[in-house]
C-alpha cells in the first residue's frame, strides 16, 4: 500500500515535470531558441560515434539477410526488368535525337547548362526512435559544411533534407515523413505542385493547377519554384495513381519514391544552393531580331479580327477602345 502511494506521488511529480518540459520545448522552438534541438544535438555528438560503429558492424549482416530475402523475388523482378529493357530499347532510338535537339535549343536560348552538384557523402548510422517519424542520422555535420535544409540524395533520388546538425552528425527528415514537404514538378510536362510524405504509404503530390492531365508512370522531380529549398531536377519518384474525383477543389496524386528507405546506407548531402527561382527573362534592349515590314493591305485582309462581346442592354459590353476594328471593318476590306 505504501509503495503504491509512493508510485502515485512519483507519477504525479514526473507527469508535471514532463508537461513543463513539453511546454518549454514547444515555446522555445516557436521563439527560435530551440532547447530540444540543442539537447538532441548533444546526444547526437555523444552517441554518434557509437551509432557509427554499430552501423558498420551490423551492415554486412543486414545486407546478407536482405539478400536471402530477395532470392524469392528475383524471378519476378527479372521478368519485370526484361520487359522494361524492351521498352528502353524502343525509346533509345529516339533518345539521341532528343539529346541533339535539346543541345541545339539550349544553345539557341543561351540556356544555363546544369552545373555539377557539390555533394558530401555520408553513411546512415541510425534511424528515428519512433514509429511515427521517418528520420535518419548521418555521420557528417557542421564540420563538413552541412547546414539545415540541405537536400540529401542517394543513387536513386531524393532521400530528404537536413533538419538538425551537430559537429559530427546530422539528422535528416526523410521525404516520406508526414512533416516533409517540397516543391516539385512533373518532369515530362513541367506541371508544378507540392509534395508531402505519408509515412509508409505513397507520397502525395498536389498539382498547383488541378485541371491538368497526369498519367501513371510520369516522373516527379524537385523544383526551385517560388523559393523551393532544393536544387531543381532531383528525381523523387513516379506517379502510381492519378485518379480524378469530381467536385474536388484540390487533386492528390500518389507518388512512389525511387529511394528504398529500408536499405539506406550511403547518401549524399547536396551543398549546392538552389538557383534563384524563376527569374524573369531579361529583355535585350537592342534585339538583333526585327519584325518584317507589314503590308497594310495584306494585313487588313488576312489578319482575323476578334469580334467584340455582344452588347448588353445597358451597353456594358461596349469596347473601351473606340478605334478598335469591328467585324464590319474587316469584311469591307
Amino acid at each position: 500500500m505504501f509503495q503504491r502511494r509512493r508510485a502515485r506521488i512519483l507519477l504525479a511529480v514526473s507527469v508535471v515535470v514532463v508537461l513543463v518540459l513539453v511546454t518549454v520545448d514547444f515555446r522555445s522552438e516557436a521563439g527560435g531558441d530551440d532547447l530540444g534541438g540543442r539537447l538532441r544535438n548533444g546526444v547526437s555528438v555523444v552517441l554518434g560515434p557509437v551509432q557509427d560503429g554499430l552501423s558498420t558492424l551490423v551492415r554486412p549482416i543486414a545486407n546478407a539477410a536482405g539478400n536471402v530475402g530477395e532470392l524469392f523475388s528475383i524471378r519476378a523482378e527479372n521478368a519485370r526488368l526484361r520487359a522494361q529493357l524492351a521498352q528502353v530499347e524502343e525509346r533509345r532510338l529516339s533518345y539521341d535525337d532528343v539529346v541533339r535537339e535539346n543541345e541545339e535549343l539550349r544553345a539557341q536560348l543561351d540556356f544555363r547548362q546544369r552545373n555539377e552538384l557539390e555533394t558530401v557523402s555520408a553513411h546512415v548510422t541510425a534511424q528515428g526512435a519512433s514509429n511515427f517519424e521517418w528520420t535518419a542520422t548521418i555521420d557528417v555535420g557542421t564540420d563538413d559544411g552541412i547546414r539545415p535544409d540541405m537536400p540529401v540524395t542517394d543513387g536513386d533520388g531524393l532521400v530528404g533534407r537536413v533538419i538538425a546538425t551537430a559537429s559530427n552528425s546530422s539528422r535528416v527528415l526523410l521525404s516520406i515523413d508526414p512533416n516533409f514537404g517540397a516543391s516539385v514538378r512533373i518532369a515530362e510536362t513541367g506541371v508544378i505542385g507540392s509534395l508531402q510524405g505519408d509515412g509508409n504509404e505513397p507520397m502525395i503530390f498536389e498539382p498547383l493547377i488541378t485541371d491538368v492531365e497526369i498519367e501513371v508512370g510520369q516522373e516527379i522531380v524537385t523544383s526551385a519554384y517560388q523559393g523551393g529549398t532544393f536544387v531543381s531536377g532531383i528525381p523523387v519518384g513516379v506517379v502510381t495513381s492519378a485518379e480524378v474525383e469530381d467536385g474536388q477543389l484540390s487533386r492528390t496524386v500518389d507518388v512512389l519514391p525511387y529511394v528504398n528507405f529500408s536499405t539506406l546506407d550511403i547518401v549524399s548531402v547536396v551543398l549546392t544552393e538552389p538557383a534563384a527561382p524563376d527569374e524573369p527573362l531579361e529583355l535585350d534592349p537592342s534585339p538583333s531580331f526585327s519584325p518584317p515590314p507589314v503590308d497594310p493591305q495584306r494585313s487588313e485582309a488576312e489578319v482575323p479580327t476578334i469580334p467584340p462581346p455582344v452588347d448588353d442592354a445597358d451597353g456594358a459590353g461596349e469596347s473601351t477602345e473606340p478605334d478598335a476594328p469591328t467585324p464590319t471593318d474587316g469584311q469591307d476590306t
Partner: peptide, 14 residues
C-alpha cells in the same frame, strides 16, 4: 525523446 526529431521533448516520457 532525445533520439527523436519531430515531436516535442517529453512526449514519449508522458
Amino acid at each position: 525523446d532525445l533520439l527523436s526529431s519531430t515531436t516535442p521533448l517529453g512526449l514519449s516520457a508522458l
